[in-house]
Design a protein around this nucleic acid. Sequence first.
DNA 1: GTCTATATTGTGATAGAC
DNA 2: GTCTATCACAATATAGAC
Lengths: 217, 217
Amino acid sequence: MAKTAKKAIDRDGETEQRILDAARTVFLRRGTAGARMQEIAQEAGVNQALLHYYFRSKEGLSTAVFRQIAGRIFPALVQTLAADISIDEKIDRIVALYLENMMRNPFLPGYLISELHHHPERVPQLLSSALGAEPGRVLPPLFEKLGAQINERVHAGEMRPIAPEQFAINLISLCIFPFAARPMLRVVFGMDDQAFARFIEQRKTELPAFFRNALRP
Amino acid sequence: MAKTAKKAIDRDGETEQRILDAARTVFLRRGTAGARMQEIAQEAGVNQALLHYYFRSKEGLSTAVFRQIAGRIFPALVQTLAADISIDEKIDRIVALYLENMMRNPFLPGYLISELHHHPERVPQLLSSALGAEPGRVLPPLFEKLGAQINERVHAGEMRPIAPEQFAINLISLCIFPFAARPMLRVVFGMDDQAFARFIEQRKTELPAFFRNALRP
DNA sequence: GTCTATATTGTGATAGAC
DNA sequence: GTCTATCACAATATAGAC
């Protein structure tokens, strides 16, 4: 038996995990509203009733997926922004982190933006579960610290002034938007997967330089 | 009768237009898959059957909305990028154009990204109807011209080299992404509508400077 | 735990009166 | 051109056997 066993026993949470993986695939492709329980069941190689056994409802399943995704995206960003390293180092790390991460999951930005747009009421719960704490306790101090760090370099004449929120948004925009706009780039620039990969590869080196340059005094 | 007439006669295309407006509102809020014909009918103040009378199906209605939106977004961008003006002028105009445009329709970026993500097969038809021609006939020449324009300034020592595609994507990312991420900003930065408006207002002046600075040699 | 029915509701679409 | 009533089926969810 062992791995080929299809019935009766789910040692560990193998089946549950397979369902969750399948759900992630389908929700990312179709969005929460467009996803069908049947398609998820098929993708997982199980019956539709099992989805309800493990996750009770479509909403339960979609929440599980949403949390998982958010938990993979936000913590690393927050930690990097809060880390005790130079601004330049932060730029380098965030660019590398996101471009590599998104290159492996190119559907992720489109999915996240779509979900946040259509279900803004989920954002608070999402952020607190992704950050492991209330946003009010984590984020304001983070941006105060980042602001102070920017100010230091501004006063040293090494940088032009910028609000920490604008700093963060600019950096994240430049990293994430190309993936969200990927379906359009494919057509507008006639990019296939390989061309897109080259495009992103180019950004890995050019983006940090571009961004640092933008902040020169 | 005149304006208060609710039945029988639809002079001009008043009713059809009202339905289309209602559909835009609902599709933008819920996405194509999440939108309900009933909600659109209610929003338009008509019966659900009337939607089918004018647009035949949900797909027909969603296509009409999608085209309308795309037609309002892309042509101005393409025209500005192709215009016979300096690079700096293009930066200024595109930033102003998008930030003002999106400020008036803040749901638009999230909707567009969501639709393009979940229905990438629609992109080609979308672009050709939005551009009034085949993408292959409009866009490659446009980026060649932009590339030449960049090269001129690079050789004059006024600018560092950048591929025209990266130039365009960077500019558009910085303009659009903040709106797509708006639901998150509301929570992360505790922004209400007014605070968000101020945030965008600040970008109107800072973004062109930021961007030009990034391209200094 | 996993499956096969089946119940139940939601939702796009049509028929036909006015 | 607009409405009410209804159809047909898609989709989530549950019951109950194994």
